[in-house]
């Protein structure tokens, strides 16, 4: 009754289509590696020459110094010490703000899974995580820069902290959810207070996962530029006063990019940033792997 074979495309054609599709998938998937390789190649090729000791110890050169060096056929002098210290200061302060709050908030969400308040907070955490970084920059401008009437490292830190917070909250929550419920009960059964069960049992048991989440959050904000333009602004000298404008590696790249005489510096700075982020990611991954085995 059913004329099967006559109307179906032949089996060999279907197999051909199947193979063709497979090859396409593999090809397209491997093509995505091209931009990665290209970017790394570009940054390495153009950036490695500038990396030397003074790159880490000296501040960014002025336009005049750069022009002089260029005319003499030398490498542009100076380094990105002001950016490195700025990034360091701001990321550290941001972490000091975001890590404790993020972990405690994550504990709250994992302890109250189904009440209305925590599902509201969960949605808002997602909202915050999806907020464009430039918008975070705008509000921190109003919350910190204006009241202090100056761009500052602390403003930059607050912006980065706001970006880290949702990442840490969610990773803490996810990690704690994976712990067996008996762990908490065992602690409470021994007569320990809720506080010490959370601080001495839950958080240490989840340490690997929390640590990974924190490192990934740090690596996410390390290369941020847009919110810092509106909050930390940048500075030409190494600055340890957190209430004054401060530079960061990413801000320096932006500054070099906009100054034709300093353009040679963008690649070395990018290289530095990439390596830094890569290291953070590798550590995060190896911690995650180790923790999973246990």
């Amino acid at each position: 009754m059913i004329p099967d074979k006559s109307r179906s495309s032949s089996v060999s054609f279907r197999i051909f289509k199947d193979r063709f599709f497979y090859v396409c998938v593999c090809l397209m998937a491997s093509l995505t590696a091209i931009p990665l390789i290209w970017i790394i190649w570009e940054v390495l090729k153009k950036g490695y020459r500038q990396i030397n000791l003074s790159f880490f110890t000296e501040v960014a050169p002025t336009t005049l110094e750069a022009i002089k060096a260029k005319n003499a056929g030398d490498l542009i002098p100076g380094g990105i010490a002001n950016g490195i210290t700025g990034t360091l200061i701001m990321v550290v302060i941001a972490s000091l703000i975001a890590i404790p709050i993020g972990i405690l908030g994550g504990v709250y969400l994992s302890e109250h899974r189904n009440n209305r308040f925590s599902s509201l907070i969960r949605s808002l955490t997602d909202l915050l995580q999806g907020t464009p970084s430039i918008v975070v920059g705008i509000i921190v401008y109003f919350w910190v820069v204006k009241p202090l009437s100056s761009y500052s490292a602390v403003a930059g830190s607050v912006a980065l902290a706001i970006m880290m917070l949702p990442l840490i909250i969610r990773s803490t929550e996810e990690t704690l959810k994976m712990l067996p419920g008996t762990l908490k009960e065992a602690g409470l059964a021994l007569g320990a207070s809720y506080t010490s069960v959370v601080l001495r049992v839950l958080i240490p048991s989840a340490f690997g996962g929390l640590f990974t989440g924190i490192l990934l959050a740090v690596s996410r904000v390390t290369g941020e530029t847009a919110p810092l333009m509106l909050t930390a602004l940048g500075a030409s000298a190494v600055n340890w006063d957190i209430t004054r404008p401060t530079s960061s590696v990413s801000l320096l790249i932006w500054q070099f990019y906009n100054d034709p005489n300093l353009v040679d510096m963008i690649w070395s700075s990018s290289l530095f940033l990439l390596v830094l982020i890569l290291i953070l990611n590798i550590i995060a991954k190896s911690v995650a792997n180790k923790w999973r085995i246990q």
Partner: peptide
């Protein structure tokens, strides 16, 4: 492949801009 993709996600926006 997942690691390559993760690395792509880790590259800062400004470096993408430069490239």
């Amino acid at each position: 492949v997942s690691s390559v993709i993760e690395l792509l996600a880790g590259i800062p926006s400004i470096v993408y801009g430069l490239w």
